[in-house]
Design a protein around this nucleic acid. Structure first.
Length: 131
DNA sequence: GCCAACGTTGGC
DNA sequence: GCCAACGTTGGC
């Protein structure tokens, strides 16, 4: 069981959309490094859903309910997706500013590689975001 | 709206 | 295979 963070532009697909849909294929990831991480994800892993744009906050937790598989809508074996379902909203969203203000989060990929859309999250990073 | 950081593309 | 030019992302 591993922890991850998925970024999304809420105007495009928000945590609320995921709650409404109950389940969705997390698609649209094209970056090589993000795809590498995506392929390492296993069924049962948990992912923080982070909203970019004006919100810039970790908003909720999703559970991965499939293995990575090739996006059936596309014809490229490199482009994989996983199915996720909403698990719980965070009691209080954690903003990017709060993450950056904490020295223990200084090496978090969200901070050091702001353009990465799928990234691993360590236990301590997970605790900071979800406690 | 700007721009830094990063990825990608294509000419050589 | 290098790298300049260009495009995209996302924070500010």
């Amino acid at each position: 069981m591993a922890y991850w963070l998925f970024k999304t532009e809420p105007d495009c697909y928000s945590y609320g959309d995921l709650e409404r849909d109950k389940k969705t294929a997390w698609d649209g990831v094209g970056n090589n490094l993000a795809l590498k991480y995506l392929r390492q994800i296993e069924k049962g892993d948990l992912a923080i859903i982070y909203h970019t744009g004006d919100e810039r906050s970790a908003i909720g937790v999703a559970e991965v309910v499939s293995k990575p598989y090739v996006d059936p809508k596309l014809n490229d074996p490199k482009l994989v997706v996983v199915d996720v379902k909403p698990k719980r909203r965070l009691s209080k969203p954690v903003t990017l500013a709060q993450v950056k203000a904490n020295t223990k989060m200084a090496d978090f990929l969200l901070v050091t590689n702001s353009r990465l859309s799928v990234m691993p999250v360590t236990d301590s990073q997970w605790s900071f975001l979800t406690d």
